[in-house]
Every structure is written in C-alpha cells, then in structure tokens.
Computed example of a mutant assay.
Amino acid sequence: MRKLILAAGLVSTLSACGGGGGLLNRDRPDEFAVSRQAPLVIPPDFALVPPAPGTPSAANVDSSRAAMEAMFGGPAPRSATESAALNAAGRANAAPGIRSSVGDPGTEVVEKGTTTRDIIAAPEGDGQDARAAVPPQ
C-alpha cells in the first residue's frame, strides 16, 4: 500500500512538470531579440601604405624580438657616466651569457664573510639612521 501511494505521488509530481503551465514551459524573453546587432565593419585605415620595394617581408621579421621591442622599447642609450663605469668594470671582457651561468648550481662561489652578507642584506635608506656596531671586548 505504501508503494502505491508513493508511486501515485511521484506520477502526480512528474505530470505537473510537463504539459501546460509548468515551471519549465513558461514564456521567456528572447535574449537575441532585445537589441539589434550592428554589422561587423572594419573601418578603413588610411595609415597603411603598400610596402616599398626591397624592404623585408613580414614573414622575415622575428616576432618575439618585435614583441619585446614593442613592450619594453629598444636598447636604451647609455649616458657618458654609465658608459665610463661599464668600460672601467671591463665591459669588453665580459663573458657573453654570464647571467645564465651565475644561477647555475655548478658555479663556484667564494665566501666573503658575514660583513659582506650584512652589507648586502641591509635595508635601503639614505643612511641617516645608521649606527656603527661596536664589537664586544
């Protein structure tokens, strides 16, 4: 008897979903009829000119280099002071790819001591609040 009542309740619940006036069959607005879509038109670009004879084609341009130059600009011009400092530091003798080999685990490093480590780890500032540490006697 219990099964019969349960089945009748289930059938009546399912019959309410179908047919006219159920929750799933209500009238909804058509989202595509709300506004008209303008046709896709590409505006003319009067800045485009045909390529000059003898110029490299777009297929020969390195896209990654062009993207880097577009994002960060080309190489920045160096000031006279910066060029002099780089030349004094040995710019001509610099190994090409030194930045890649510095982080290599096989790179040999020299322990400079705790003083150098403390100087490098010091917070940035103008030095007005700096105090000399007196070593214990």
Results as ranks from 00 to 15, higher is better:
D104M: 05
D104H: 14
Q137I: 02
T116P: 00
I119G: 03
A88S: 11
G97M: 03
A133G: 07
G18E: 08
P53H: 08
P29I: 08
E31L: 14
V61G: 05
R99S: 09
P43H: 01
V34Q: 14
P105K: 04
G97S: 01
A52W: 00
G18I: 10
G21V: 06
V61H: 01
T116W: 13
S101T: 15
A52T: 12
D104Q: 11
A89V: 04
D45T: 03
P105M: 06
P51T: 08
P53S: 13
T114V: 10
K112A: 13
Q137L: 06
N60C: 03
E111S: 09
A66S: 08
G106W: 00
P75M: 03
P53T: 10
P43F: 02
I42Q: 10
A52R: 12
A7N: 04
D126G: 11
P96C: 01
I120R: 12
V110M: 12
A130W: 03
Q128Y: 02
G113L: 10
Q37S: 11
I120H: 01
A59M: 07
L48W: 06
G97T: 02
G106I: 00
S15C: 12
P39F: 01
D30T: 05
A16C: 11
V110C: 03
R78Y: 02
S12I: 15
L14I: 10
S64M: 08
V41D: 01
S64V: 11
P96S: 06
A59I: 13
G90Q: 10
A95P: 00
C17S: 13
A33T: 05
K3H: 13
D129S: 14
